[in-house]
Every structure is written in C-alpha cells, then in structure tokens.
Write a protein that binds this DNA or RNA. Structure first.
Lengths: 225, 225
DNA sequence: AGGGCAACCGGACCCTGGTCCGGATAGCGG
DNA sequence: CCGCTATCCGGACCAGGGTCCGGTTGCCCT
C-alpha cells in the first residue's frame, strides 16, 4: 500500500522522456525534487497509511460510492480534518489510492518486457500502450471514474503527465509528423476512462473493438511523413 | 431565452445524419418524439422561463460559480424544489442555459453557409467544424466547464450526440477509412472544452495552434483509404 | 533532559446539491 | 359555474465536501 510517496523511478536511458516531463512543467511532482521530500511526522505517516488501508477496504466493499471522507475518517478512528489535510480533497484521496495500480502500469511500460517496455519499436510500443491502458483503467474504472470527476486534475496529475510524456516520446521516436504534444493529447483522449466506459457500457462496444480502433488510430497518426 | 424546448430542426437533406442519430439511440431526445411534447402547465412554463432568465443573469454577473441552485430559486422568487423538478439537477440547468448558444452553433453547421454548412466538401466542413467548435466552446467555457463536471452527461446530452453524429456523417462522406464512430469520438475528444481550456490556460497554447492541430488531425484521419 | 515551535489533530461548523411530502392550483369535463 | 385530479409548489430536511481554530504532540536543538 503506497507508503509515504517516493517519487517514481524514471529509469536510465529515458532522457527524452525526462525532457518531455520538464517541458510539461511536471518536475516538482514527478522527479525527486532535490531538497524537499516533505517528510511526514511519525504520527502523520502512521495515519496516512491507516487511512489508505481503510479507504482501500471501503472501496472494494461498497465501491467508490461508499468512499465518503467521513466514513474513511471514522473507520480509521481519525477526525475528518485529518483526512482532508493529508489528501487535500476527495480527488486527492482517490488519486493516492490509485497510485498503487498506476505504478504497476508505469513499471510495465517504463521497464517491462516488450512490446510494452523498451526494446520494441516505438509504433509497436504505442499499440501495446493503448491496449494496456484500456484494460488497466477499465479494470479499476470505479475509482478512475470517481477520480476523473475533477476534470482539471486529469490533465495535471503526475500519472497523467507521465502517460502524456511517454506518448510524446514514442511519437517522436516514431517520427510522427505534426504537433507531437497535440497528437499525444488526442491519443490520450481516446483512452479516457469515461469515454471507454461509456462506449462499453452504454454503446455496447467490446474492448477488442476499442483496441482495434486504437491500432488504426496509431497507424494513422504515427506513420512517418 | 430557450422556451419550452422544441426539439431542434434537423433540416431536409440530412437523412444520413438522422440515421446516425438513430443508431446512437438518441431519438427520444432529439427528434420530435411523435406523441409527447410534454406540455408544461401554465405556471410551470412561466417559472421555467423566469428561472432561465435569472440564471443567465447570475451567470454573467458572477460566473458559473455564483450559479447555485438556491440562489437561482431565491432570485426567481421560487422554492428550491421547483428548480430541481424543472431541470433535474444543476447540470440540467447548465445544459438548458447552454442550449441557446448550442443552437446557434447547430444552425451554423446544419444550415449555415459554407464552409461550415452544406455545399462544401466534407473535409472542408470538418476543418471548419473544429475551428467553430473550439472558438464557440471557448467563448462560453465558464458554463461549458461547469456542465462538463458531469462526465457521463457529456456523452449523452442531445447537443453532444448531434455533434457526434454530424462528425460521423462528414467522415462517412469523406470516405474516411476505419471505424467511423470511434474516429468521430476521437475528434470530439480533441475538441473537449476542458482539454482546450487546459492547453490554453495552463500550457499557454494559442487557439490558432489548436486549430492547426485540428486541421492536421482531420487530414490524417479523414484521408481516403 | 527539556523547552520551543512547527506540524498535527479533532470535530464543530458552513455551504450546497438533492430529496420529500403536505398543501395549493391549473385545467378539464360536466 | 363547479368540482376533481394530475400537476405543481415550497421549504424543511438530509448528506457529504470542505474550512477553521483551539488544543495537543512529535521533533529538533541546545
């Protein structure tokens, strides 16, 4: 369960990914922030992990719906204020909860085996990335949907920025023509949880169809010249 | 100010657009719904328009933020329950408010002059559509952003469905290869208010750049075979 | 060891979205 | 013109998110 929040390990050999992150002003959150690993006080740290444990339990008992700030506070034997101070707001709590899953995904595409990880040609990695994200997010859609309620956060959360810069990097390596950042945003939009969920749940599409759509999209957008 | 809600006039010569709407299960909301123009009682109708007027005033005085249900109710000299019964929830009120602007846009791309309206080749209409939507939504982003808080509504509102099916139609006429509905969703995602706003406000992009990006995207996705 | 201070804690408090139901009223048929 | 009912109205009520501040406590420095 996601402890005090060590910034994730951007592996060696990904300098251009780092460049992208830099350009996206994501540094303070994503990279070791040289001087300030805002150490929690002992009791605070203890409470933090207890809160996350409790929250995780509540979440998979009653779904994200039952995950109310007060419920978490009570179940963790803590005042409501404490929850807010620690996580800022409900969205913050949700993001913290998802952080764990998110890291699994990140590990897969940053350092995992091909075709998702390095050692595969960029276009292939792009395809794999889409499929992985679709399945991953869909598996945890409850929480992701709840977290996405906050529209602005979607574009500024560390996890989102990492996905974005990863796409930028792959597109650049694939020598995709055009405005790379906008292309990446377009692709990211296709993977949006709420869109995928809507297409699956309300329009009856299968994940396979969505993956095929992704493949086609990548083929069209990442093709050279 | 948007009266009792006459369903919008899908003009002659757009049969395929209607087909798309049908396929999207959008009929009940979008098309004249033969038997049920749910007539409001006189007092109800009166209240409805008063509420919309008041809401519009509040909205451009204090921004969407000041648009609280109770405030609207009070300003319109009406109980809070009335506002909720009429519009369902806050999002409903916002959508109703936006309906007016939305119709202007719809008129432009359904029956207006080229390149937006008919009598222009599909790809050109696609380009124009993007630019128009970007500017239109951005001009009213306050309300659109507030309305978009409800993620699920974005994909099911009549206005959104119309945009979607319009894109489907144009893509089909342009003989774009691939899964037309998914392509349309992708394009729609690019135009998402919260994305555009984020790119402009937080990443410092200009609307021109976004429009260029759109043009490029259309070129890539709508090109034949 | 112990003193001082920053950080933390708790829970009362406020605000707003949303629900509910007893009472009023428009509109219709006689 | 009158009475009946479906519809509407109002505002009391609830829940959940977010804020605040007086009191407490870990942590560091001497």
């Amino acid at each position: 369960m996601t402890e005090p929040l060590p910034p994730f390990p951007v592996p060696e050999g990904h300098d251009d990914l780092l460049d992208d992150l830099k350009k996206l002003n994501a540094l303070p959150e994503v990279v070791p922030a040289p001087g300030e690993p805002p150490r929690l006080r002992a009791d605070a740290a203890r409470n933090r992990t207890r809160l996350l444990e409790v929250a995780a339990r509540l979440a998979d008992e009653g779904g994200a719906a039952r995950l109310t700030m007060e419920a978490v506070a009570n179940a963790a034997q803590v005042g409501k204020g404490t929850v807010f101070r620690r996580f800022g707001d409900r969205t913050g709590l949700l993001i913290a909860l998802l952080d764990h899953h998110e890291r699994e995904l990140q590990a897969a595409f940053l350092t995992g085996p091909p075709p998702l990880g390095p050692d595969a040609p960029p276009v292939e990695r792009l395809r794999a990335f889409g499929a992985a994200v679709i399945r991953h997010d869909h598996a945890h859609r409850d929480l992701y949907l709840a977290a996405h309620a906050d529209a602005s956060r979607r574009h500024t959360s560390p996890a989102g920025l990492l996905r974005l810069s990863h796409l930028c990097m792959l597109l650049r390596r694939a020598e995709a023509p055009g405005d790379v950042e906008l292309l990446a945003q377009t692709l990211l939009g296709y993977l949006d949880v709420s869109l995928v969920d809507h297409l699956v749940a309300r329009r009856g599409m299968t994940l396979e169809r969505l993956e095929d759509g992704w493949t086609h999209l990548v083929g069209r957008l990442a093709g050279k010249g």
